[in-house]
Amino acid sequence: MEAVLFFVLAAGALAGALGVVLGRNPVHCALFLLVTMAAVAVFFLMQDADLVAIIQLVVYASAIVVLFLFVITLLGVDEHERLDEPHPFQRYAAIVLGAVLLVQVLVVIGNDWATGARSTVGPLDEDGRSGNVETLARALFTDYIWAFEVTAVLLVIAVVGGVVLARRSGRRLPAEGERP
């Protein structure tokens, strides 16, 4: 069952990724990205990482893809978008870098040259707690409470900064030599 599910989803994720790269219509590309994100979210779920799965759906599949679609619609892209490439070498560079990344991942999986602190292996809900949502919440409200609270400042800055930059300026810049 699990193997069947894995292969079906893996095929879906790969097909979505290919669709993003090969699609002609930008809106379709963004929607293909959604397929990949959703498939990866189910992978996380299969690994008992329910929180990561939800974050994958909420942040990537919803917020980020919707943002892409927003930008695409705002820029008014029509169906026959000419995909002119101002820098033709970029395509080859992307292929080479993608290959390098693939080799890197394979090498890292095959070797254990990186040593560091001992990592913990096993399901997160081992000690009778109700899964990794609670474990993470506990960490947020105990050890990381200060970091968690401090993000409030970031949100205030985001709101004030957004208003400042988006508001239409009411005052004109007086010309040189003009009396205020």
């Binding site: 401090v150 400042v153 970031l154 800055i157 985001a158 004030v160 900064g161 400042v164 930059l165």
Partner: peptide, 10 residues
Amino acid sequence: LEILSIALYV
């Protein structure tokens, strides 16, 4: 770093 920088960008 983000707090000090994002305020500075604005």
